[in-house]
Design a binder for these strands. Structure first.
Lengths: 145, 145
DNA sequence: AAAGTTGTAACAATTATTATTTCAGCTTTC
DNA sequence: GAAAGCTGAAATAATAATTGTTACAACTTT
């Protein structure tokens, strides 16, 4: 299993908006070209980023802009925005443990908290980097090319 | 996306082996009954646990046994055993970033390390609990029922 | 020899992910 | 105000991953 590529696509999009946003309109078509991902998917991802208040887009006028500074956007915000993980959580539980078995009827009591802690550890790590960090690295690498 | 239920199934299996192993043979059929998961899937999971030296099974003679003490099996060992994460890692990257774009050709350099760190945080948290912890909780809950 | 079991392959069903097509509606520009 | 270019969204298709099922050879124990 893997976390949907919408997450890396979203990060890619945000970097592009910052790097290219001054010189040109960053349209879904342009982003499709940079990411190699279908423009409709890009618009979906942009839509989710907009719903979360991370970017601004509107019909008609081409081009996405950041809705708040990069230093106020963490990887966790992006991960939440694109729904990497649904309500059920990171781990998929087998759905029908047998309530007639002492283990089957208690497995959730024993495991749910621990699995939640694992998910939280992942999320906390994501909170540790902002898009400002990511873009700074990107600019550095580009400058040294 | 979610981590395959084989992981929670594997944990369930190991708890059952410890709880019921003294009184009865813990066969794939019995485990299928307790988990609600198909017996062939159970045998697949048991096969992976065997390959990782966590359980012992053999053809013909029914019943799985632990190959080492519960306190020497962490949730991480189980997670590794059942191949929750393949070589590509936890995050699925979009596959064709454009090498002609400064962002596209550098996105991996910028993100791979950070994503690896997130995965490591998850794995470290999994290393923090052993099956002995999990079974102790299970026994406690059963006793109080 | 019979009964019960594991290991494994082949296949089917289900679900999730990603891509594609299409088009109404909005903005900007000429 | 017409044309061009864009977004938002729905519908559908294609692909991949996950889980379940059927079938059976090989093995153990009784």
């Amino acid at each position: 299993m893997q976390i949907t590529s919408k997450f890396t696509v979203a990060v890619h999009i945000l970097i592009c908006i910052d790097i290219f946003g001054k010189e040109r309109r960053v349209t879904s078509d342009f982003l499709s070209g940079s990411t190699g991902v279908n423009a409709v998917i890009i618009r979906n991802v942009l839509g989710k980023l907009r719903e979360s208040g991370i970017v601004e887009t509107r019909q008609g006028s081409g081009g996405a802009n950041l809705a708040r500074p990069l230093c106020e956007i963490t990887l966790y915000d992006v991960y939440k925005a694109v729904d990497c993980i649904d309500d059920e959580g990171l781990f998929h539980f087998h759905e029908n443990p047998n309530a007639d078995c002492p283990v089957g009827r208690n497995i959730h009591k024993v495991m749910d908290g621990r699995l939640r802690a694992v998910q939280t550890a992942l999320e906390n790590e994501l909170k540790g980097t902002t898009l400002a960090d990511v873009v700074a690295d990107t600019r550095k690498i580009i400058d040294e090319e």
